[in-house]
Amino acid sequence: MTSPPVVPDRPPWNLRIGRRVVNLPMLALLTAVWVLLFGDLSPNTVAGGLLVGLVTMLVFPLPPVAWGARLRPAAFAVFLGRFAVDLVLATARVVAQTLAFGRPPRSSVIAVPLRTRSDLLFTLTAVCVSVIPGSVIVEVRSGTFTLFVHMLGADAEDTEEARRNVLALEERVVRAFGTRSEIERMAEGGLS
């Protein structure tokens, strides 16, 4: 008889100390920051960094974070290309609106319920929207995955186009970084 394979209950890069879990890559990062702060790569500095990092991780534990994303190179290239175009066009629109003397600037706050249910993809989309000139995130409702975006240059007639633009950006983010199930949900256009 063969025994069943042993499946580890924790990733190999985690170390359990009592009831706490220490993530070894994070400990290495904290140690590197410590060494950089002191500017000295001596054994004492490295040992001190390890000790301070370990104590910090044991006293202030963070919940485990699942990455939950996949980088898809072709979709990432499309995302980057279109994002660059969006940055240039948005900058030109902001400049044109700034130089339009005598006309009051138009703007609207629009609610955009996103289709993704991944916190990571939701955050990436919000960051991308806020980086584009002329758009500012004024509120985020993570419970309903809704962004409230202040759009410069958008009035009542332009809100649907602005909403479509945010949803198109979300789709490019999901296609570039999302899991297969997120991409399928996006293709179906439904909410989970």
Rank of each mutant, 00 (worst) to 15 (best):
L36K: 06
L36H: 10
L36M: 12
L36T: 13
G39H: 10
P43W: 04
N44I: 07
V46I: 13
G49E: 04
G49V: 10
L50F: 09
L54R: 03
M57P: 04
P63S: 10
A66F: 15
W67H: 14
W67A: 08
G68T: 03
A69R: 13
A69W: 14
R70I: 15
L71T: 08
R72T: 04
P73N: 14
P73E: 08
F76Y: 08
F76S: 12
A77M: 05
V78S: 10
F79Q: 01
V88P: 06
L89I: 05
L89P: 03
L89H: 09
T91C: 07
R93A: 14
V95M: 12
L99G: 08
A100H: 12
A100P: 00
R106Y: 10
S108L: 06
V109A: 07
V109Q: 05
V109H: 04
V109Y: 06
P113R: 03
R115E: 04
R115I: 02
T116M: 01
R117N: 15
D119T: 06
F122D: 00
T123C: 07
L124D: 03
T125H: 06
A126C: 07
A126L: 05
V127A: 09
V131L: 14
V131F: 11
V136L: 15
I137K: 01
I137S: 10
E139P: 06
V140S: 07
R141Q: 02
R141S: 00
T144Q: 00
T146Y: 01
L147V: 01
V149L: 09
H150R: 13
L152M: 15
L152H: 12
G153M: 14
G153T: 13
A154H: 04
E160S: 15
A162R: 03
A162Y: 12
R164G: 15
V166K: 03
L167P: 05
A168R: 15
V173K: 02
V173E: 01
V174Y: 01
V174L: 09
